[in-house]
Nucleic acid binder design. Sequence first.
DNA 1: TGTACATATGAACAGATGTAAATATGTTCA
DNA 2: TGAACATATTTACATCTGTTCATATGTACA
Lengths: 117, 117
Amino acid sequence: MTELTDKEKMTRIRNVLPPDEELYDLAEVFKVFGDQTRVKIMYSILRGELCVAEISDVLEMTQSAISHQLRILKNAKLVKSRRDGKVIYYSLDDDHVAQILRIGTEHLEEQNEKGEE
Amino acid sequence: MTELTDKEKMTRIRNVLPPDEELYDLAEVFKVFGDQTRVKIMYSILRGELCVAEISDVLEMTQSAISHQLRILKNAKLVKSRRDGKVIYYSLDDDHVAQILRIGTEHLEEQNEKGEE
DNA sequence: TGTACATATGAACAGATGTAAATATGTTCA
DNA sequence: TGAACATATTTACATCTGTTCATATGTACA
């Protein structure tokens, strides 16, 4: 068991980190989660697909604002779409999205409980 | 089995959504995850605590920049700290943080696999 | 007490972000 | 084809965010 110098310790930790590009992409994904409107959209389609107009109705926001946010969600592959005639239905893209929402919510609840003690 | 009017359908969905304040807080938490520097910090302390100077070393960023981001992480309860003399050690606050990082990474990997097909 | 060291904070600035308004695209159906 | 409808896109703008630089706070130890 040899002792590590500080420099060696830092190098080791640096080597364990995922590559910069991966960390960048990861931050980009979370950035997409980090907006109230987009969180609301994801929650509103958590139990099943909705079209743009329905989402606008539910959130009481303009069609333009919703459409912009849907594009961002779709680019990040958090949401997918399906066309049926004029109407386009949106739903969550994969199960990770719902999982992240759930764990985030759990985190909040746990922190709230801690705060009450 | 009665048919629902569009208005009733929207009202139902709206009623299933968590309260606005909760969705706001949730977005705020994800916002904190949504920065490359903060993601790097969280990853660097994933396997054990590090002090501010060590994190600065690993990420090759100024002490000030790291300290600012640590405060944001701490306010969001994603990170906790422990003082030992002059030195302050930081570590992840609860297991949800690591879980969210992991699921986010899984999501990216899965999307990359899909893209390769 | 005073010096050295570790970390935190405040101000300022460049760059990024979300929304509304207007307009464009794409689809259906007469 | 053209009118009507659903959604997407462009532009513009106000607001927010991360970093640097300078400085303050807090701790240990002589």
